[in-house]
Amino acid sequence: MKTEEVGRSTLETWTVDEVQAAYSKGEIVLIDVRTPQEYMFEHIPGALLLPMAFLECASLPGQSDKRIVFHCGSGVRSEKVARKCIEEGFARIAHMEGGFGAWKGANKPYMGTNMATGAPQMVK
């Protein structure tokens, strides 16, 4: 994990392996900030959808029980969202480096769309 001090806050950049390990142990809440269309086509099972356009950092829960880790398609939007949350008072927040593209590139499991039927299917 890479960390960057931003004022009195810490921005963490997690690898896909770190995210998968923490997610499988129930240690994090994974929030997908892509569009509903992107999410419907393919997503990490159990990741919550909260599109960047609708995100209000003040509405997010605290991180006493589980850490919040944002992700998007490439890591750009999730980093912007994380920085916005820091500007709005979060002391520590994280995002996934490389986004969903890196997740797929590392052959991590995800829910995709069967192009022949249009039905959702697990891809491993």
Score class of each variant (00 low, 15 high):
56 E>R: 12
118 G>F: 10
69 V>I: 10
50 L>W: 04
118 G>N: 10
68 I>V: 10
110 Y>R: 00
98 G>T: 00
84 K>F: 00
62 G>R: 06
92 R>I: 00
80 K>E: 09
79 E>D: 12
63 Q>P: 00
53 A>V: 15
105 G>E: 13
88 E>C: 07
88 E>D: 13
41 F>D: 14
59 S>E: 04
113 T>W: 14
89 G>I: 14
63 Q>W: 05
95 H>Q: 10
101 G>L: 09
108 K>A: 02
62 G>E: 12
81 V>E: 05
90 F>C: 08
47 A>N: 11
45 P>G: 11
85 C>W: 05
83 R>H: 06
43 H>W: 05
100 F>P: 08
106 A>Y: 03
113 T>R: 09
102 A>I: 10
81 V>A: 15
63 Q>F: 02
70 F>E: 02
68 I>L: 03
111 M>G: 08
56 E>W: 06
113 T>S: 00
94 A>P: 08
42 E>K: 10
44 I>F: 10
62 G>W: 09
82 A>Q: 07
94 A>F: 05
74 S>N: 10
91 A>I: 02
45 P>R: 13
116 A>W: 08
94 A>L: 00
121 Q>Y: 14
117 T>P: 01
117 T>R: 11
82 A>N: 04
40 M>Q: 11
80 K>P: 00
62 G>K: 02
98 G>Y: 02
76 V>D: 15
103 W>G: 14
82 A>V: 05
105 G>S: 09
75 G>Q: 03
76 V>K: 14
44 I>K: 13
115 M>L: 13
102 A>H: 09
113 T>F: 07
112 G>S: 13
68 I>H: 05
113 T>Q: 04
64 S>K: 03
54 F>L: 15
101 G>I: 13
95 H>N: 04
110 Y>Q: 04
44 I>P: 04
96 M>W: 01
61 P>R: 03
83 R>D: 06
73 G>R: 15
106 A>L: 08
65 D>F: 01
92 R>T: 12
90 F>G: 04
65 D>E: 10
101 G>E: 14
53 A>Q: 15
58 A>G: 01
92 R>G: 06
74 S>D: 09
50 L>Q: 12
47 A>L: 06
110 Y>V: 04
108 K>W: 08
73 G>I: 06
95 H>I: 11
43 H>L: 08
61 P>F: 00
85 C>V: 01
68 I>Q: 04
115 M>W: 14
74 S>L: 00
73 G>P: 01
76 V>N: 13
71 H>K: 03
96 M>R: 00
49 L>I: 11
79 E>V: 04
108 K>D: 05
54 F>Y: 12
53 A>E: 12
95 H>T: 09
64 S>C: 03
98 G>V: 00
44 I>T: 10
51 P>W: 07
